[in-house]
Design a binder for these strands. Structure first.
Lengths: 189, 189
DNA sequence: ATTATAAAACTAATACCATTAGTTTTGGGA
DNA sequence: TCCCAAAACTAATGGTATTAGTTTTATAAT
């Protein structure tokens, strides 16, 4: 048994990510993607379970890429340095790959095992950093959920162009991270 | 001059909101909506500028409803009480009207004047509450952006079913709000 | 080298979607 | 009663996802 080799999933998903980054996640259709890959739309079904399957693969790719960025940013750093570095990496990712970041939250099935597994890896990176503050069990979960909310909320609003005023957005981000850290330290210690 | 009266925009937008809440924002199409209203799809163009126009109206409706909830929650309360009450109202809205809340962030044009105006009203409610802490000019913007990020991030993750662990979600929310408040008070005062 | 095979890519067809153009209906004001 | 403008309609177009069934083709075994 040994078939011919055609396109592989990685190539397909990367092409989809390029479309998403260039024209938004809604521009990722089997039509636009197949045109970019020089094949006919039905051929994609050999690699992906229709549009929902493609979206899942794209979300998975985005989550994994984001996790790599966050892990790299936190590596070798501790406490506030690690949190700030991780926050900057998160925001930078959302800016650098707006469509791919969008895909990590766009019509994804949080019940899906693969998605859950990849998401858990991000959660673990965040937990490891926050544990350095000596936050205990249940509070560690609260703090992790909090930081995740902050990062996603801010990045999501930035990505949608939601901060209109002239005030510097990066300063607002640092303000928020520092406020969170200040709160954590005055609360859990 | 006086034409016949048919459907009005409010009826249409509310029907769209019902579909969004029941089956998700992607289920809101001119087809499903026209079926629910017992008309043919092209008739909707008499009231709304196609699907993009419908989505704008839906987002606008959601933003206005949310603003009403937040203003009501903050009314007559001060400082931490006001912030906590507002936070709870925000999260409750996202849970009660998941599809409509989704619409407030789904393919909306932040450059649109109506959207910007409605959004500004929400921002003003938040600013008014935070000003009670005596935060000055630029920091007030940072703090407002921060609280908005927290509320949207948390609500958005909840709505997508992103918090998987057994730990109580409401407790996590209160933890986050309190952490933010603690941070603000130890930072700006 | 030849051939069998399994996957990849294809064509054809269906059903749904948004949208436009042009027609018919209809209800309130004169 | 009649007018007319808005509302709703029909018909048609081009895009979308998807399925079924066919053809192509690279590889692995002969």
């Amino acid at each position: 048994m040994s078939p011919r080799v055609g396109l592989d999933l990685k190539t397909i998903v990367k092409a989809a990510a390029d479309i998403a980054d260039a024209d938004g996640i809604e521009a990722v259709t089997l039509g636009t993607l197949s045109r970019k890959l020089n094949i006919r739309p039905p051929s994609l079904y050999n690699h992906v379970e229709g549009l929902p399957g493609l979206r899942k693969e794209l979300a998975l790719y985005g989550i994994k890429e984001l996790e790599k960025c966050l892990a790299l940013a936190a590596a070798g750093k501790a406490l506030d340095d690690a949190v700030r570095s991780m926050g900057e990496a998160y925001l930078a990712f959302a800016r650098r790959k707006p469509g791919l970041y969008e895909a990590t939250f766009y019509t994804i099935d949080m019940g899906d095992t693969d998605i859950k597994l990849a998401s858990d890896k991000i959660v673990n990176v965040v937990i490891q950093v926050l544990q350095q503050y000596g936050i205990d069990g249940e509070n560690a979960v609260h703090a992790t959920r909090g930081l995740r909310s902050i990062l996603h909320g801010f990045a999501s609003i930035v990505q949608k162009g939601g901060f209109a005023m002239e005030i510097d957005i990066n300063e607002s981000f640092h303000f928020l991270i520092d406020t969170f850290l200040m709160g954590i330290k005055n609360k859990c210690i």
